[in-house]
């Protein structure tokens, strides 16, 4: 089983986000960066598939600046075999990222491309579907269960109020949702081994963005709220307020 896993370096979800003075991006000062949480599920699934098959490989790809090699090392420590950094400091949109990944993936042999279902910075949830389209492959997004039998695969895809059961053939693109598995932590042995695994850096040119960010602002704060009271005595007043707003 040969898998390619696409990962992204993003601010930790516990990070407080401040918009930079130029209004074009966020201020990275004091922000801790991590592997996108959904990518951990994608990577874990690829490692498990390789382990279950007893053969194959896991290649991790990422588009980003030099600092992105940190999360690629983490992926190698978790159990990926090799990493490729598509290095660029240019900014683009989701489609530009998907094109850069697709250009690299086309030249490789693989059974499965796995991505996190969405990156928690841009929150586009676009790259997996775009990759499927650019590569002309089956693509299933928001996957919470995946079963592979030879060249046939069945995925459970999360939808409103339930799951879709989706059948497709390999090779394919899968977007991983939380719940697909329980990602492992890198072991000490894994961290040591990662130092000797290949991490290739390739300079790439990114496409001009088709979507332009005109401005970025912090959301308006909420108006000061009110403590209605303490305990059950506050309940009638709370219900009266909610009825006043025609909410119940």
């Amino acid at each position: 089983m040969k898998s390619i896993v696409c990962i992204k370096r993003v601010p930790d979800t516990e990070a407080r986000i401040r918009v930079a003075r130029d209004g074009a991006g966020i201020d990275p000062a004091g922000v801790k960066y991590v592997m996108n949480p959904y990518d951990e599920f994608a990577l874990e699934e690829a490692i498990r598939l390789k382990e279950a098959a007893g053969e194959g490989s896991v290649t991790v790809l990422s588009v980003g600046s030099g600092e992105t090699s940190e999360i690629l090392r983490t992926a190698l420590a978790m159990g990926a075999d090799e990493a490729v950094l598509l290095s660029s400091t240019e900014s683009t949109d989701g489609l530009g990222i998907a094109r850069a990944l697709a250009d690299e993936i086309r030249g490789r042999e693989f059974d499965l491309v796995l991505c996190g279902k969405q990156a928690v910075d841009d929150d586009d949830m676009a790259v997996p579907s775009m990759l499927g389209e650019l590569l002309g492959l089956p693509c299933v997004t928001v996957v919470v269960a995946l079963a592979i039998d030879g060249r046939r695969a069945v995925a459970h895809r999360e939808i409103e109020g339930g799951h879709e059961v989706v059948e497709f053939d390999l090779p394919a693109v899968v977007g991983a949702q939380k719940g697909l598995n329980e990602p492992r932590y890198p072991s000490l042995k894994g961290i040591m081994a990662a130092k000797k695994k290949p991490l290739e850096v390739k300079e790439v040119r990114l496409a001009e963005p088709k979507l332009r960010i005109a401005s970025l602002e912090e959301p308006p704060g909420r108006a000061e709220g009110e403590i209605i009271g303490e305990g059950t005595e506050a309940v009638p007043e709370l219900v009266r307020r909610l009825r006043e707003r025609a909410l119940i």
Binding site: I17, I26, K210, L211, R212, I213, A214, S215, L216
Partner: peptide
């Protein structure tokens, strides 16, 4: 953060 975006 909230972004205002336009299309090329």
């Amino acid at each position: 953060a909230m972004a205002r975006v336009s299309f090329a």
